[in-house]
Write a protein that binds this DNA or RNA. Structure first.
Lengths: 146, 146
DNA sequence: GCAATCTACCTTGATATCGAGATAATCGAG
DNA sequence: CTCGATTATCTCGATATCAAGGTAGATTGC
């Protein structure tokens, strides 16, 4: 029994992530939005109005993708673009009333579903998992940049 | 300090997976193939010739996506479709000589890179991480189906 | 033996994503 | 003040993915 190889850890990580992602998607797709759009709305709900660019960096979308995402959400009147008085290049995105209502509902459902999805793990296990994932995640991130 | 919430565990899992995925992609994109194509070739290398359908299930691609993937690989002469004598509906996919050469090289590089990517984790930590990921992954998978 | 059903694969149409390049506003050096 | 560099956003083309539907071979029930 040798140690876990890098490829094996990666495979397991990938599969687990896919499986949990399917749970997350199922939890919100009923509301007609995908994971990216959900992430954008959730960010606006908890962090308040933000610039397009900043949102894109936070949810790991490229500049092209975040524009498309905001377009989608704006078309459905879930968010609104406003101009920043201080920097005319910057467009500030904020939730509309219906957007707020939708994301509040979606987030509550999502949180409940995610709770069930990781319910197999006991509190101590969750802490361990988070610690290990952060450790390898941060390392991988720094490697990906450098 | 309450326990880790489901959404937080999911967020950390997602970020770690994305970060490691970027490493994996960087490791093989130099050879002109993406992660899906790599997974297909790697499967053929280690499991031998297989039917299109079976490959798709193994690498978690939909029927449309796996066809497109095999088309890509076939266009680059990395794999070849042959007919199965026993079931004419089934097309058996096998590596060509150059396909084998490519994936052997790619896999070696990939394995080395993944080893470095998880090098922050000590053997014991890797085991823990794999155990926890499998636990939550299997659970999430069964939930996604049911 | 043949009709109904199933299975494997492919095709098509709709989305989502990215990267590169375009545009416009801001900043900074001189 | 003005020119070049930087920053924020958008546009466009290419790629990847999925879901649904189509075709042809295989299987089952009668």
């Amino acid at each position: 029994m040798g140690q876990e190889s890098g490829t094996h850890v990666w495979l397991v990580l990938w599969k687990a992530s896919r499986a949990v992602e399917r749970n997350a998607l199922a939890s919100i797709s009923g509301l007609g939005i995908g994971l990216s759009d959900f992430a954008v709305l959730e960010l606006l709900l908890h962090k308040g109005p933000q610039s397009v660019n900043w949102i894109g960096r936070k949810v790991l979308l490229s500049s092209g993708s975040i524009t498309a995402a905001i377009d989608r959400l704006e078309a459905r009147k879930l968010v609104k673009r406003t101009t920043d008085a201080e920097d005319l290049r910057s467009r500030i995105v904020k939730l509309t009333g219906s957007g707020r209502k939708l994301i509040e509902r979606a987030f509550a459902k999502h949180a409940a579903d995610m709770e069930e999805t990781i319910a197999v793990l006991r509190p101590r296990e969750r802490e361990d998992l988070v610690r290990l994932l952060k450790k390898v995640g941060l390392w991988a991130e720094s490697r990906a940049e450098g």
